[in-house]
Simulated scan of single mutants.
Amino acid sequence: MTFVLVVDDDPAIVRTLGINLRARGYDVETAGDGRSALQVVDERLPDAVILDLGLPDLDGLSVLQRLREQHSVPVVILSARHETDDKVEALDSGADDFVTKPFEMEELMARVRAAVRRTASGEPPLVVTGAGVRLDVTERRAEVGGEVVRLTPTEWHLVEVLARRAGHLVSQRELLHEVWGPGYGRESHYLRVYLAQLRRKLEPDPANPVLFLTDPGQGYRLVAQRSAG
Score class of each variant (00 low, 15 high):
Leu151Asp: 06
Arg165Pro: 07
His82Tyr: 04
Ile50Leu: 15
Val6His: 11
Glu203Ser: 05
Val14Lys: 02
Gly130Ala: 02
Glu106Leu: 15
Leu211Glu: 02
Leu55Trp: 01
Ala120Gln: 13
Gly145Pro: 13
Phe98Thr: 07
Val76Gln: 07
Glu155Thr: 01
Arg68Glu: 08
Thr84Pro: 01
Gln172Val: 09
Asn20Ser: 12
Arg226Ile: 02
Pro125Gly: 04
Glu106Lys: 09
Val14Arg: 15
Leu211Cys: 05
Glu29Arg: 15
Leu195His: 10
Glu178Arg: 14
Ser188His: 14
Pro102Val: 03
Thr138Ile: 09
Gly145Lys: 12
Val76Ile: 09
Asp8Arg: 04
Ala110Trp: 11
Trp180Asp: 05
Gly60Ser: 02
Ser121Leu: 15
Tyr194Trp: 15
Pro124Ala: 14
Val223Asn: 10
Leu17Arg: 05
Gly145Phe: 12
Val76Asn: 06
Glu143Lys: 05
Gly54Thr: 01
Thr152Val: 01
Arg118Met: 09
Glu160Trp: 11
Tyr194Asp: 13
Glu178Cys: 02
Thr152Ala: 14
Gly219Cys: 12
Pro204Gln: 06
Glu147Ser: 13
Ala224Leu: 00
Thr16Asn: 12
Thr84Gly: 00
Tyr190Gln: 12
Val127Trp: 07
Ala12Pro: 02
Gln197Tyr: 12
Thr214Gln: 15
Val73Asp: 02
Arg44Ser: 11
Val210Thr: 15
Arg192Tyr: 12
Glu43Tyr: 05
Tyr190Pro: 02
